[in-house]
Simulated scan of single mutants.
Amino acid sequence: MITDGLSYPVSGDDGLKRLLIGSVLGFASVLVLPAFLLLGYSVRVLGDAAHGGTEPPAFDDWGEMFVTGLKATLVAVVYGLVPFGLVVLLAVTILSGAAVGGDAGGLLAGVGLLGVLLSVVASVLVYYLVPAALTNMAVDGQMGAAFDLGRLKRVLLSGDYLLAWLAPVALAVVLNVVTVILVATIVGALLVPIVQFYVQVAVLYMFGRAYGEVTGTAEGRQTPTGAGAGRDNSDTKLR
């Protein structure tokens, strides 16, 4: 899976073109709007990989891609509410403990530290869950599918998906080393967005492929629910 993932971003005749477009969008994401386009494309990659695609989808239908990016952002925000809420709660608790002082203050501070641990665990769980949720949304064609935990359970508990989740950790280490080397020179710094987009697509492919293998989507055994839902194997559209 890792080997296929590393070759996937530049597969096909337009591999370099896609890489350059994605890199530009990544560099321009500070302007916000390109970030939604890039996220919409990420969902498209997840869906196509789940269907057994062997090369990244094209950058086209920009309007649909933008709307998909907005939906994906909402999904991530909803799932992120739990760790965010815990962070706010622990901040308030620790500040209250400092203000109260004494034994009561120490108790509040202890509760706050426990909240820190819980928020870290919750954040890890969210990072583990969101890619599967977005892939489910891409395959099904409906935003509500991202919150269908019953369907997601099978994927989340699979070894293939766990491997796809762990792989980015190793890739992130390599990416950080490469980034440090590249930023040492002006020319190298210009290559950073390209490397980042390359790794991002490789990781998304691994998530999508793991989903497809676990659910049978890649072999066509799973049919998207809902009338007219989904794209075909090469172009999954969300409603």
Rank of each mutant, 00 (worst) to 15 (best):
L89P: 09
A91M: 02
V92N: 10
I94E: 02
G97T: 15
A99G: 10
A99N: 15
V100D: 03
L107M: 15
L108F: 12
L108M: 15
A109P: 04
A109K: 10
G110V: 02
L113F: 13
L113E: 03
L114I: 13
L114N: 01
G115P: 05
G115Q: 01
V116A: 14
L117M: 12
L118T: 10
A122G: 01
L125C: 00
V126C: 08
V126G: 03
L129F: 12
V130T: 11
A132M: 08
A132Y: 00
A132V: 03
A133T: 00
T135G: 04
N136A: 06
N136G: 08
M137Q: 04
D140I: 03
G141H: 00
Q142A: 14
G144T: 13
A146W: 12
G150N: 13
G150Y: 09
G150A: 07
K153L: 05
R154E: 12
L156R: 09
L157M: 14
D160S: 09
L163H: 07
P168G: 09
V169A: 04
L171M: 12
A172Y: 01
V173N: 02
V173M: 06
V174H: 05
L175Y: 13
L175W: 14
V178E: 12
T179H: 11
T179V: 12
T179W: 06
V180W: 06
V180P: 00
I181E: 01
I181M: 08
I181V: 14
A184R: 01
I186Q: 11
I186W: 11
V187Q: 04
G188F: 06
G188T: 03
L191M: 12
V195M: 12
F197Y: 15
F197A: 10
V201K: 05
V201I: 09
V201C: 01
V201H: 03
A202N: 04
V203A: 07
L204A: 12
Y205G: 06
M206W: 02
F207I: 10
F207S: 12
R209W: 13
A210W: 11
Y211M: 08
Y211I: 06
G212R: 01
E213R: 15
T215G: 02
G216C: 09
G216M: 04
T217W: 01
G220C: 05
Q222D: 08
T223S: 14
T223K: 13
T225K: 03
T225N: 01
T225E: 02
G226S: 06
G226M: 10
R231I: 01
N233E: 11
D235H: 13
D235T: 10
T236Y: 08
